[in-house]
């Protein structure tokens, strides 16, 4: 059996990759994929803890996160399509109409 810290390290790495991706990537869809990576890192953490502690709450939480992520993807991709229709680009550098 793989001990708990291994799972936590992997999920920590995944979360960091996701965060760095959000901060450095320029394509809105790739940014969204990085956000999904962060959420999946969270899911892995929950599952690992749930197994380790013998509590089912963590697994239930994961179901909710996955459902919500799907709903978010639907709305987010729709927003990106609306943006693309008007701007013909999905690059966040082009999301620049408003600046202070």
């Amino acid at each position: 059996m793989v001990p708990l810290p291994y799972y936590l390290i992997v999920s920590g790495i995944l979360f960091s990759i996701g965060t760095i991706g959000v901060l450095t990537r320029r394509n809105a869809i790739v940014i969204f994929m990085c956000v999904e990576l962060m959420l999946n890192a969270v899911n892995l953490t929950f599952i690992a803890f749930s197994h380790e502690l013998g509590k089912i709450d963590g697994q239930v939480f994961v179901f909710f996160i996955m459902t919500v992520a799907a709903a978010e993807a639907a709305v987010g991709l729709a927003l990106m399509i609306a943006f693309y229709k008007n701007r013909e680009s999905i690059d966040v550098e082009d999301v620049n109409l408003m600046k202070w």
């Binding site: 979360f15 996701g18 965060t19 959000v22 809105a28 940014i31 969204f32 956000v35 962060m38 959420l39 969270v42 978010e72 709305v75 987010g76 927003l79 990106m80 609306a82 943006f83 008007n86 701007r87 966040v92 999301v95 109409l97 408003m98």
Partner: peptide, 18 residues
């Protein structure tokens, strides 16, 4: 402008949820 507002809010909101 509204598209941009929605897209920005979405990306940063999802990021913060993480």
């Amino acid at each position: 402008k509204s598209n941009e507002a929605g897209l920005k809010y979405f990306l940063l909101g999802a990021f913060s949820t993480g």
